[in-house]
Write a protein that binds this DNA or RNA. Structure first.
Lengths: 218, 218
DNA sequence: ATATAATGTTAGACAAGACTAACAATGAAG
DNA sequence: CTTCATTGTTAGTCTTGTCTAACATTATAT
């Protein structure tokens, strides 16, 4: 059984390794907002536990075991988010912080119950896939809106940032998962885009926003 | 905001102070299964925080503030137990351990939501009163079955032990809250009692069991 | 009324998980 | 290919919450 702290390191490692397998101590340190020497010593303990492979002055890499353990934490997090939205009437911007805590509850039964009550959902309220109980994840091929071209028609499938601030930004514009979008214009200088949200308004989004909107082309 | 450890000390203090206001370090130490010197040093910190009054070599006593904080932890615990049973299909013997963890979640909204979804319940699945959001508790006048006399007719209103083991003992005999009981006999030597459970069987309960069954006379 | 048991306190150690300061290795840029 | 910024490591400290060993006080029992 892993400590709360260890589970948070695992989650960060998995999240950072999704773009290329290797993770530098520095990246991890920034993500966790924990200073490098602390992260470094934790990585040595992780290597002992065979959660990662570690060599001095090299980036670390999750082992198969480490990936699975990390996926289980992500599973608990996303199941919780879904449960909070579906069964407890929370809004999608309210659930991340609470799920950060509940994901560490030590009770397999508790999460099995959630999973069953929700009908074994594949995605959380932010469109992220929920790993199954073996740690396997449904592969999705969404791309950020920022990678789309003028005239592309797409559907908003997920957001890559579940923070309250970002979700409130979308709420204020009544933008929801499933909304259909069309790129009207793209500003090369700053990466901002003009986007028509079908049935709603036409918006201008900064690149920061466009990077977080994960879409699928029609 | 209090740490998980502090919240557990608070709960234990409240629970032990319900029978007479004062709590000895020794009692607290046994309840928490934490050695006396550790408890002693925590009590000094609690005194600093004005959660208790503390004088060397004397029992400690919760202040009004301490009582309220403790009641809030108990509230969160009991709301959680009720939620698990009512909304997540748990059995009453499964919820104590999980609630011991969830009670420490830092999110007032989360517990308000539970409370609302449950319709502001007054009692948890074990018949214990749930303190309201100001820390006030409904007073009940239940007495242990062990205090009853032969021929007394009573209703089982609560259990004073929510451990899985004890509740499984009751499950095995299909005994539920609300069951009507009659005392058929009482053995002075060991305090065991013969009890008729209306509509079910006649049982012999040891004193240990009778002390945990909280009843109301008809 | 004093010996002894029970309870409470002090002092010092340890583990987990954080930090800073200082040093070492790597890599990018001239 | 050497210089300097970035990244990684080592060493030592801190806090929380635990422990044991030893000592102090209070309560109990003859």
């Amino acid at each position: 059984m892993y400590s709360v702290v260890e589970e948070n390191y695992l989650k960060a490692l998995l999240s950072l390794s999704s773009t290329g397998e290797e993770v530098s101590i520095n990246e991890l340190s920034k993500r966790l907002e924990i200073k490098m020497p602390t992260v470094n010593s934790m990585m040595k303990r992780f290597a002992e536990k065979e959660l990662i492979t570690y060599e001095s002055y090299k980036p670390v890499k999750l082992t198969a075991k480490g990936k699975k353990e990390a996926a289980m934490v992500v599973r608990k997090h996303r199941l919780t988010e879904m449960f909070l939205v579906e069964k407890m009437d929370f809004n999608w911007e309210e659930v991340h912080e609470i799920a950060e805590q509940i994901e560490h509850i030590k009770s397999p039964l508790f999460f099995e119950k959630m999973d069953a009550l929700l009908g074994h959902p594949q995605f959380d309220p932010h469109g992220s896939p929920i790993p199954d109980k073996h740690g396997n994840v449904v592969e999705t091929a969404y791309l950020p809106l920022s990678k789309c071209e003028v005239q592309d028609q797409v559907v908003l499938k997920a957001v890559s940032d579940s923070s309250e601030g970002f979700l409130r930004f979308l709420n204020a514009r009544t933008i929801l998962l499933g909304d259909q979008l069309r790129v009207l214009g793209k500003e090369n200088f700053d990466g901002s885009m003009q986007v028509e949200v079908y049935g709603k308004a036409t918006e201008t989004f900064s690149q920061l926003i466009c990077d977080k909107l994960m879409v699928e082309k029609i």
